[in-house]
Amino acid sequence: MALARNLMIATFAAALSLAPAAHAAKTDASQFSIEQIAAIDQVSAYLNTITTLTGDFVQTAPDGGVTQGRFFIEKPGRLRFEYAPPAQLQIVSDGLWVAVQDKKLKTTEKYPLVTTPLRMILSDNVDLMRDAKILAVFPETDLVTLSIEETTGEAPGTLTLMFDTAENKLTRWTVTDVQGLDTSVSLENTVAGEPIDPSKFRIIEHRILDVGGSNAR
């Protein structure tokens, strides 16, 4: 169970922050071609169109294990990942905290959103050239692959986004941790713009573990 929690933290606790870190490295635009910059701007523009997004997800762990479930996103900063049985974990962000919850053990690990490195993805004003340290971008006919470095927060490493230019949507992200292990999440059957019940983003707290600045209860 500890391994499963670590995978969730590496993949999703990384994905929910709102505020940029003041000391985060920036992208040097001179290292990219006009085509690459256009691709980066296209991904930023798409992320700025999202108000709500729902769908299914499939998560692949470094050991090849696969879990799946439903996800709900509402910008700014709210997210819920509901894992299908037999998984007992769920991820909930209420806009201030991200909670990794074990339904079987009835525990909640809470992380301040401002400590997590995917802050730019769920903000209202996304500009990847401004807010991220972009390592590489590969614009192809129907796919843009974009890698972002993150050295701060709870889950340092590299984030790789895969963007389908034909369908104009984000289809996958992969978090590579400091040990070089990959955890990937594919988004499927996505629906944008539909209202989401606010209770989806409410953190029902069990026994709180002292993680990332929260107080044990």
Rank of each mutant, 00 (worst) to 15 (best):
L3W: 11
R5E: 14
L7K: 13
T11W: 11
T11E: 06
A13T: 02
A14G: 07
A15D: 07
S17Q: 13
S17I: 07
L18P: 08
A19H: 04
P20D: 09
A21C: 12
A21P: 06
K26P: 09
T27G: 06
D28V: 09
A29G: 02
Q31H: 04
E35I: 10
E35P: 12
Q36H: 10
I37K: 01
I37Q: 00
I37S: 00
I37W: 02
A39E: 02
I40S: 00
Q42F: 01
V43W: 00
A45M: 09
T52S: 15
D56P: 13
V58C: 14
Q59D: 12
T60H: 10
T60K: 14
P62H: 08
D63S: 00
G64E: 03
G65N: 06
V66K: 15
T67V: 01
R70I: 13
F72Y: 15
I73P: 05
K75E: 13
R78N: 15
L79D: 00
F81Y: 09
P85Q: 06
Q88T: 05
Q90A: 14
V92Q: 09
D94H: 08
D94R: 08
W97I: 07
W97V: 08
A99M: 12
V100R: 03
D102N: 14
K103E: 05
K103Q: 10
T107M: 04
Y111H: 15
P112T: 06
V114A: 12
V114L: 12
T115P: 06
P117H: 00
L118D: 03
R119V: 02
M120W: 07
S123R: 08
D124P: 09
N125Q: 11
V126P: 00
D127K: 05
D127S: 07
L128C: 03
L128E: 04
D131Y: 05
D131W: 03
K133L: 08
I134R: 06
I134Y: 03
A136H: 04
P139T: 00
E140P: 08
T141R: 14
T141A: 13
V144S: 03
I148K: 06
E149F: 10
T152N: 12
G157E: 02
L159Y: 01
M162G: 02
D164A: 10
A166T: 01
L170A: 04
T171Q: 10
R172Y: 01
R172Q: 06
W173E: 00
V175K: 07
V175I: 09
T176H: 03
D177Y: 05
Q179D: 07
G180A: 10
N189G: 06
G193K: 07
E194V: 11
P195A: 11
P195M: 09
I196H: 10
D197I: 07
S199E: 13
K200E: 11
F201P: 09
I204N: 14
I204A: 12
E205M: 08
R207V: 05
R207I: 06
L209N: 05
D210C: 14
D210L: 12
V211Q: 15
S214C: 14
